[in-house]
C-alpha cells in the first residue's frame, strides 16, 4: 500500500503523458493535436510539483512557527512554464488559423492530399 501511495502520482503523470502523446500521434485534427500537446505539458507540470512536495510541508511562504516547507524551486520553474506555455499555444493556434486560411481545412490528411496534388 505504501508503495502504491509513493508512486501513484508518477503513474498518473505517465498515464496523462501517454494520453497526450497518443492524441498527438493518432488524431488528424490540428486543434486536437494542440490540446494533446497541452495535456502532455500539464503532465510534466505535475511531475515537477510532485517531486517538490514534502509530506506535512507547508506552502513555501515563510510563517512563524512553521519549520517544514515544500520545495520552492519547482514552483518557480512551473509558474513561468505555464505562462510561456499559453503563449506557445497561442502561437500554434495562430499557425492553425493561417493553415485554415491557406488550405481551407485543418485536417492533416486533407492538407497532405492538397500538398501532393500540386
Amino acid at each position: 500500500m505504501d508503495f502504491f501511495i509513493d508512486h501513484y502520482n508518477y503513474w498518473v503523470v505517465i498515464f496523462l503523458m501517454m494520453v497526450g502523446l497518443y492524441t498527438v500521434i493518432s488524431r488528424g485534427n490540428l486543434i486536437k493535436k494542440i490540446i494533446g500537446l497541452n495535456i502532455f505539458q500539464v503532465s510534466v507540470f505535475f511531475l515537477y510539483i510532485s517531486v517538490g512536495t514534502v509530506e506535512g510541508g507547508a506552502a513555501p511562504i515563510l510563517t512563524d512557527g512553521i519549520e517544514l516547507y515544500s520545495n520552492p524551486l519547482p514552483h518557480v520553474l512551473i509558474l513561468t512554464a505555464i505562462v510561456v506555455g499559453v503563449a506557445m499555444t497561442a502561437l500554434a493556434l495562430a499557425l492553425v488559423v493561417r493553415i485554415k486560411e491557406s488550405y481551407g481545412t485543418i485536417e492533416e490528411d486533407e492538407i497532405h492530399e492538397l500538398d501532393h496534388s500540386l
Binding site: 506552502a59 511562504i61 509558474l79 513561468t80 505555464i82 505562462v83
Partner: peptide, 8 residues
C-alpha cells in the same frame, strides 16, 4: 512579496 502572487 508576502502572499501568493506576483507579476505573472
Amino acid at each position: 512579496d508576502f502572499g501568493p502572487g506576483g507579476g505573472f
